[in-house]
Design a protein around this nucleic acid. Structure first.
Lengths: 168, 168
DNA sequence: TGATCGAAGCTAACAACGTTAGCCAGCTCG
DNA sequence: CGAGCTGGCTAACGTTGTTAGCTTCGATCA
């Protein structure tokens, strides 16, 4: 039995239930019926937990995108839906620099694969699409649009603009 | 003499020189030759300082965009350039929710105006462009692209896709 | 069976954080 | 001259991540 993953599980639970500020070493230990310093028997520190959550988020997002479909609109819609359903996990995974040393290799590529499929292998186009999807989600999550903004329309415009890459 | 702005000045200096983690109340007080609690005679707390920096960043970015020009490519290029030149300030300003209560009104609109000009008043399109510019910058700043990624190409693709809105 | 040893818990503690309370010097103004 | 505001100070509190060092329990091995 790997206690490390139980720690990460608990961290995820707290993150979803009570937000990022609640994910504290003591609160985390509490969730496991343990004292804070004991966590360090299973985990190197808080940053390791964050990296693990980041990795989880990337895996799940990748899976969702892979299952989503092959055309740009549904793919992008799936991206947006996942992010809005798991806002804390999304923020954690998207905002922090990728620690490529610690991150299992292949995960990044797996998450990006569906995008590449949709652009017909055009890497630059895939990155551009990733960029606009992340940007719109990020602004939306950070409340950067006025409360009355019609975000669906903005997404539609962006999808429309990029559709050229998918229908050659 | 308004000491409040001196505090914010010092915060900005520390932010640029030593990064966000260094912007601490004690470090800030130190920069001003003062003890930490004295800061509270000029400023309500740390969040107020952050909001002030956010406002500054928005103002400057707005000014840069206004001066940049009237076509999409130069506008977007100016956006990217400013963000990469002031990465910490950009992160601070873009990642945190906007406190519209405290933020002087009009600043948001002023920053968005050049974008609107370029889309011919199409709000949804302006938001879409803002989204992709922010997204690409954000991913770039967070090291989310592989080290060998050709980001210029990604930007070019995005600009190209959106060019339809500017050349009717 | 008994000795050993590592895994996994504990308490105590440290440094740094944001913040509050309360005191005191000095300047300004009536 | 005295009142009061301005802006500094020290001491302290609660919380954060983390370390040191002790104990306890269960498995492994001679």
């Amino acid at each position: 039995m790997n206690r490390r993953s139980e720690v990460v599980d608990a961290a995820e639970r707290i993150l979803e239930r009570e937000g990022p500020d609640a994910v504290t070493m003591r609160r985390l230990a509490d969730e496991l019926g343990i004292q804070a310093p004991s966590l360090y028997k299973h985990v190197a520190g808080k940053t390791e937990i964050q990296t693990a959550l980041q990795q989880r988020a990337l895996e799940r997002l990748g899976a969702v995108l892979t299952a989503a479909g092959a055309d740009l609109p549904t793919l992008v819609a799936a991206y947006r839906r996942w992010a809005l359903q798991h806002p804390r996990l999304y923020e954690l995974s998207a905002r922090h620099p990728l620690d490529r040393q610690r991150l299992a290799s292949g995960i990044e590529a797996a998450a990006a694969a569906p995008l590449l499929r949709v652009t017909g292998g055009n890497i630059a186009a895939a990155r551009a699409i990733w960029g606009f999807a992340h940007g719109l989600v990020d602004l939306e999550l950070a409340n950067r649009f006025p409360p009355d903004a019609d975000l669906d329309a903005a997404w539609a415009h962006a999808i429309n603009a990029f559709a050229v890459y998918c229908t050659p």
